[in-house]
Design a binder for these strands. Structure first.
Length: 424
RNA sequence: GGAGAGAUGCCAGAGCGGUCGAAUGGGCCGGUCUCGAAAACCGGUGUGCGGGCAACUGUACCGAGGGUUCGAAUCCCUCUCUCUCCGCCA
């Protein structure tokens, strides 16, 4: 959620930024916000004045009663009663305007950072870095959904039986590969000074609002109606919400958290040819890094996070490219996002395995996550997060790129974690 | 699931329906003292919104939401959460 103050002070800049991400209603909705806000402030001014008068009169009534001047007190009492009506009317009006404002603000996406290129589709994303050589596979190379059957390591049919489509069962070396990757990712983050968090994997409604899944995206989350709890779509939600309504001091910064959780996504209506096998699931595993930083440092932090993620891919010997997302391809909350994509030789396509974003104050404003310095000044912090990494597509890429006539070769860094070199 | 107790500022903990944004203690920050520190003493120490260049000022907030009253942290109702005991249990 954008800050009203920013909307007021930098109206044109905001509109220009929103236009960069093809948010068509930008101008009209921002103007509506400004209009409602003006009304809101006028109403509050009026309300405060009436309240001030009413408070003063009430106090006076007390004094008059004490002094025994009950007639004067009664007169004043009637005056206050009239004010009370007026207060009620304006309170309702104010609440109404605030709700309107809130709804409008919820609809406005974040303003892209300066460096974000304009554009509408993924074709407009800019490749800022590429690493590794795409392996040349044998002519009979197979996609992972064939290989997992061949080696019997991931079973979709079994998943369908006990849960449904998109809930695979990992078996034997498949399960061990999963566990190895999770541990590897966590250890790599810990080595960089991250604190490991094991959060709940269901969250309440307030948390959904805090990180921006609610309102509007409730259709993407599984919901336990009896207890009004949402299954998390990413660890970002619980880990970032740890800091909801929190004022951090200098000693609390920087915040560097890492957490492994399963993630649940309904992915309503997004099934098709491109989402075969592990490419898109209802439940998958992910190690997420979450950072909270001072505004002036957040872009350095973003770079640091990207470097970390790229390091993971390099250690896994997976060829990848780094994309700076264009305005039109960025998520609603993000000010700047880098995607890491791994090339799958067998599918002959790039697979997104990580998305690293700086939300600037967009989430912090909703969360009321602030920093209070030694000078006593309170300001919103910046939040960032990134996958480091999401498992299924990494697994898909490893299986496909490392296939050989002997079996699937486990990347060297993982071998101490898996306990085996080969899936055969 | 059953019974009871409670929810107040960074923490602990007071608070006859008006003088309570809130005693007191601790913590923290600043100062005096000191070569330095401790102790002691003095002062300061919430957030949102509105107005103001600012000093400052109006208003709201004592778990959340309603209600009674001229006036509510204080009375009433509902909800949420926490704690204790019992039951169940990984």
């Amino acid at each position: 959620m954008l800050q009203l103050q920013v909307l007021r002070d930098q109206t044109q800049k905001v509109i220009a930024g929103l236009t960069k991400r093809n948010f068509r209603e930008a101008e009209s909705i921002v103007n509506e916000v400004l209009l409602v806000d003006t009304d809101r402030r006028a109403t509050q001014g009026l309300l405060d004045d009436i309240r001030a008068k009413s408070n003063a009169d009430s106090k006076k009534i007390g004094e008059l009663m004490k002094a025994g001047k009950s007639e004067e007190a009664t007169t004043l009492r009637n005056a206050v009663a009239a004010d009370k009506e007026n207060i009620k009317i304006n309170e309702n009006r104010l609440a109404d305007l605030e709700a309107q404002l809130q709804q409008l603000l919820y609809r406005i996406p974040n303003v892209p950072a300066e460096q974000v290129p304009p554009g509408k589709t993924p074709d407009d994303n800019i490749t800022t870095y590429e690493w590794g050589k795409v392996p040349t596979l044998a002519a009979d190379a197979q996609p992972h959904w064939e290989l997992i059957k061949k080696y019997d390591i991931i079973d979709f049919e079994l998943g369908v039986k006990i849960s449904g489509a998109g809930f695979p069962v990992y078996k034997g070396k498949g399960a061990r590969l999963q566990r190895a990757l999770i541990n590897f990712f966590l250890d790599e983050a810990l080595a960089l000074g991250y604190t490991e968090i094991q959060p709940p994997i269901v969250v309440n409604e307030a948390s959904g609002y805090g990180t921006g899944q609610l309102p509007d995206k409730e259709g993407q989350m599984y919901f336990a109606t009896e207890d009004k709890l949402y299954l998390i779509p990413t660890a970002e939600v619980p880990i970032t919400n740890l800091y909801r309504d929190v004022v951090l001091g200098d000693d609390d910064l920087p915040v560097k958290n890492v957490g492994y959780t399963p993630c649940f996504r309904r992915e309503a209506g997004s099934w098709g040819a491109h989402v075969r096998g592990l490419n898109r699931l209802h439940q998958f595993d992910k190690v997420e890094i979450v950072r909270i930083a001072r505004p002036e440092e957040s872009y350095d932090v973003l770079e640091e996070m990207c470097t970390h993620v790229q390091g993971l891919l390099e250690k896994l010997e997976l060829p990848y490219r780094r994309l700076l997302l264009c305005g039109g391809d960025m998520g609603f909350n993000s000010a700047m996002t880098f995607d890491m994509e791994v090339f799958s030789a067998a599918q002959q396509r790039w697979l997104e395995v990580s998305s690293v974003s700086n939300f600037e104050t967009f989430q912090a404003n909703r969360l009321k996550l602030r920093h209070k310095g030694k000078d006593g000044k309170v300001q919103l912090l910046h939040t960032l997060n990134g996958s480091a990494l999401a498992l299924p597509r990494i697994v898909a890429a490893i299986i496909e790129n490392n296939q050989s006539k002997d079996g699937i070769v486990i990347p060297k860094v993982l071998r101490s974690y898996t306990g085996f070199d080969l899936i055969s």
